[in-house]
Design a protein around this nucleic acid. Structure first.
Length: 560
RNA sequence: GCGUCUGUAGCUCAGGUGGAUAGAGCAGCGGUUUCCUAAACCGCGUGCCGGGGGUUCGAGUCCUCCCAGGCGCACCA
């Protein structure tokens, strides 16, 4: 149930009738009604809803907005949407104040819909894929990956909630140059472990975690590959290491509450010929030419700044070529909407990938890339500099250990993805009021505490029918109900805009309204009628709060 | 140089897709508990919304030009 949307629709319909009546009476004139909005005004004293209809009509009607508004108000049928008061205000707004009880029906609906309250079917089962993290499987996940994990998972949760059929996917970059470097680095560590002289390449992987990986390899195979053919040796090492690294990545993501439906190997695109086919098809479409021994994608023909190499002089396809094949593969699997969560350092890649998809005959607008700015880590007021190559970085594993899954996820999603994220380790770690996660979770725990105590006293949350919800008239009660009623719109808005941070804002606001309510209204009051009404309200608040936290992937503790 | 993102209170950030008097948290000051969890509540804000110009009834929001910062601009991914 979305009582706010329904009320808006009623008001809009009544407004159209009123405008038509005013026109019939010759008081205003227009050909067609403009695309007006009925919205909840920012200021409370502007009423429950307001419309800009008269302002938009002014030009067509060649009349002053306030005069138009007055005419519409004259013909407005107050009974149609339970309007208690209607007035012209400001430059020509029409403000509505509804009957005080208009929001109450939302409470029984929340109790009935329970864990689905706020959900909708906007997506109508459309297949959408969310690809996120997709980190190189050569090490552990760092803070940037972690932000991507929280964002991507939350976006996937949101889209599921509004009725899409969502697939979470991790693209494994198990091909290309970095795998070569990975192999050489492993080999060097292997030889070093066996007492040989060996150097890790300049742009190789210097992280000490490779020493551990090689150690595990040694436990299984010993020095069996000491004198083996280097190509074979590297292949064996890489296969072993990738498996180990991927298992670790998969595990830490599970610990972070992220579960993927598909793990997709880049190498498989090369093996299956999908990459070659993509290049061939681009050639057929006339987008390929050869220069300096390489095959180029003529991206400039589609308005890009420059052309891109797809097959290098040495005959090996580039990452870009594989990525084109990958995204085509996504479409071929039937996804109607593709969402990628990428670090902002890849933003230059977006446009040319879309162009390539266009050249292959796909609608590039069906691919949406959520770019997130990079994470800066603060501790003790200082920036911690991270670099994967040198092995200096805070891993997701360490982060979960340090601040916990809940705080980490909340912090990563708290800001819109466009913003640089300054992650304050001390704050996230602090188990204090400063920490917004606890503030929200505490509200949930407090509600559970009330309900627990009620049960101990033999009191149940009454069915909505038993309770006289009309007794909920305190401002704190009404504000809380309003926020609860706002939840479905918040979910829908956050989902369609791919903006999970709206959830944390909503959660904080809801928690805040509950805390205020808690202070001014006693739930387990002596009067059984009041008590029952408030138990229903509190139960609805609990459900809503839990649903928000659920979408955030943050736990909703029953006691703290 | 070109592209892109960011610039809002001392700090960290919101401002639902153009609306009326721009908000929250933190920090700071002062209050609140014989009572369902004080991890809470209540009160206290003089903001050239980076700057100029434009669009219109109306701009933090849209266009344009500057300024400052982040990130890109490889036969890396």
């Amino acid at each position: 149930m979305n009582i706010i949307q329904e009320t808006k629709r009623l008001l809009a319909a009544a407004l159209m009738d009123a405008a038509a009546a005013a026109r019939a009476a010759g008081e205003i004139s227009y050909d067609e009604l403009p695309d007006f909005v009925v919205e909840i005004p920012r200021e409370k004293f502007h009423g429950d809803f307001a419309t800009n209809l008269a302002l938009l009509l002014a030009r067509q009607a060649r009349q002053a907005p306030r005069a138009i508004a007055a005419a519409i108000v004259q013909h407005f049928d107050l009974t149609q949407a339970g309007v208690a008061k209607i007035e012209v205000a400001g430059p020509g707004f029409i403000n509505f104040t509804l009957d005080g009880k208009w929001l109450l029906p939302v409470l029984p609906a929340v109790l009935a819909e329970d864990e689905h309250y706020g959900w909708s079917n906007i997506g109508q089962g459309t297949k959408v894929q969310v690809e996120f993290v997709s980190a190189n499987p050569t090490g552990l996940l760092h803070m940037g990956n972690a932000r991507g994990a929280a964002l991507g998972d939350c976006i996937a949760n949101l889209l599921t909630a509004v009725g899409y059929e969502v697939t979470r996917e991790f693209y494994i970059n198990d091909a290309g140059n970095q795998i070569e470097n990975f192999a050489l680095s492993l080999e060097a560590r292997y030889l070093q472990a066996l007492g040989q002289e060996a150097d890790i390449p300049e742009d190789g992987y210097h992280g000490i975690d490779l020493i551990d990986t090689v150690q595990h390899f040694l436990e299984l195979y010993g020095d069996k590959y000491l004198d083996a053919d280097p190509t074979l040796r590297r292949e064996i090492l890489v296969r072993f290491a990738l498996e180990e690294k991927l298992a670790a990545i998969r595990q830490v993501l599970e610990d972070f509450g992220v579960h993927y439906d598909v793990w997709f190997s880049e190498q498989s695109l090369h093996d299956s010929g999908a990459v070659a086919r993509a290049v061939a098809d681009l050639e057929k479409a006339g987008y390929i030419y050869e220069k300096d021994g390489a095959l180029w994608f003529k991206a400039t023909r589609l308005g890009e700044e420059k052309d891109e190499v797809l097959v290098r002089q040495n005959g090996l396809p580039t990452y870009f070529a594989a990525d084109i094949a990958y995204h085509r593969n996504k479409f071929e699997r039937g996804f109607k909407w593709l969402i990628n969560v990428w670090g902002a350092d890849h933003h230059g890649h977006v446009s040319r990938l879309k162009s390539a998809l266009k050249a292959l005959g796909y609608d590039p607008d069906r691919l949406e890339v959520v770019l997130m700015q990079l994470v800066r880590l603060y501790q003790g007021g200082e920036v911690l500099r991270m670099s994967k190559r040198t092995g200096q970085y805070v891993t997701l594993n360490e982060l979960i250990e340090e601040v916990g899954k809940d705080a980490a996820r909340y912090f990563f999603v708290m800001l819109k993805s466009d913003s640089h994220l300054e992650f304050d380790l001390d704050l996230a770690r602090s188990q204090s009021a400063d920490n917004p996660v606890y503030y929200v979770q505490y509200a949930h725990a407090r509600i559970c505490s009330i309900l627990r105590l009620a049960r101990e006293r033999g009191l149940q949350v009454p069915s909505a029918r038993e309770a006289d919800l009309g007794l909920l008239t305190e401002p704190a009660e009404l504000d809380l109900i309003k926020q609860i009623a706002n939840w479905p719109d918040t979910v829908a808005g956050a989902a369609l805009a791919l903006e999970p941070h709206r959830l944390t804002r909503f959660a904080h606001e809801l928690a805040s309204l509950f805390h205020s309510f808690y202070t001014s209204c006693r739930v387990l009051a002596d009067d059984p009628q009041v008590r029952n009404a408030r138990l229903v309200l509190v139960e609805a608040a609990r459900i809503t709060l839990r649903n928000v936290l659920h979408l955030l992937g943050v736990s909703a503790p029953e006691r703290m």
